[in-house]
């Protein structure tokens, strides 16, 4: 068996350590490089979006088609979600309010909770799932099957036709869907209140809307536009930058939902902090 001199052993050990250290450093550098590349890609994407938004010849027809796709086709899902939100909130809160003798405050409490927080966030999360994944999958599939390239070679700007229209449609339609879900939520709450009690429609709604102030509605609607922007941007970005294989379509759709949902929560947190400081 070959015998190593102690100095050689130490040298060998030192070399291995140094190789490991440089491998670790290289891995960290690669991660940092990837992060910076991704960040640059996102910034470039946003810059292109802004430039194409304000360039000539807007795609109005495609924008309205996307509004229809995003808005009208989401109505059943949003209606069901809104109704269940109001119903569950009422059924869960009613016993506690009865215990404190404050059951008459139920319509106002539900309306304020829905309008300020639950309606916007839950509807935005539902939209992130439906709209974000739809955009990610559709654009991803167009990328994989070279439809985006086909658009480009026929002198049509795919960023303007596909991305600008979808993002603006999401910015406009998501707040409308949220207000629509709020309305169904209050309707669901009235149904919930009548399961174990008896409240007239007019009394319930007058109490509900009597508790809602303009400053409950304004921050909620304002943040809804940002939710729409986040969902539109993330869905389009993930789809537009999908890889080349069919697997990448699934990855684009999935990552669009995950990232859009996470960003909705983060935007909500920031919006709540800002609202708290201003009001």
């Amino acid at each position: 068996m070959k015998q190593f001199h102690p100095v050689t052993k130490v040298k060998g050990f030192a070399t291995k350590q140094s190789v490991r250290l440089s491998e670790k450093t290289m891995a960290k550098t690669a991660i940092a490089n990837n992060f910076l590349t991704d960040l640059a890609d996102v910034l470039l994407f946003i810059t292109q979006f802004v430039r194409e938004t304000f360039s000539r010849n807007s795609e109005v027809k495609e924008f309205f088609r996307q509004c229809f796709q995003i808005g009208y086709k989401s109505l059943p899902l949003v209606s069901i979600t809104g109704t269940i939100m109001g119903l569950v909130l009422t059924i869960q809160s009613r016993p506690v309010l009865i215990k404190f003798g404050a059951v008459t405050m139920l319509p106002g409490m539900v309306a304020v909770s829905l309008i300020r927080e639950m309606g916007p966030v839950i509807t935005a999360l539902i939209c992130a799932g439906k709209i974000g994944s739809g955009m990610g999958a559709e654009l991803g599939s167009m990328k994989v099957t070279e439809q985006i390239d086909a658009m480009e070679v026929s002198s049509t700007n795919p960023m303007k036709f596909l991305v600008v229209t979808r993002v603006w449609a999401a910015i406009i339609m998501v707040p409308i869907l949220i207000l629509y879900a709020d309305a169904f939520g209050i309707l669901g709450s009235w149904a919930g209140a009548n399961i174990k009690g008896d409240v007239s429609f007019v009394l319930f709604f007058s109490q509900a809307f009597g508790s809602v102030r303009f400053m409950d509605l304004l921050p909620a609607v304002t943040k809804s536009f940002f939710f729409g922007a986040v969902i539109g941007f993330v869905g389009c970005y993930k789809g537009y930058n999908a890889g080349r294989g069919t697997e990448s379509v699934g990855i684009a759709a999935n990552s669009a939902v995950v990232l859009a949902s996470l960003l909705v929560i983060i935007v909500d947190m920031i919006a709540v902090q800002i609202t708290d400081m201003l009001i």
Partner: peptide, 14 residues
Amino acid sequence: RLRIGFSFQSSALY
């Protein structure tokens, strides 16, 4: 590009 036609391998129909 309007003067060049490109037929894709996958046809790339919308």
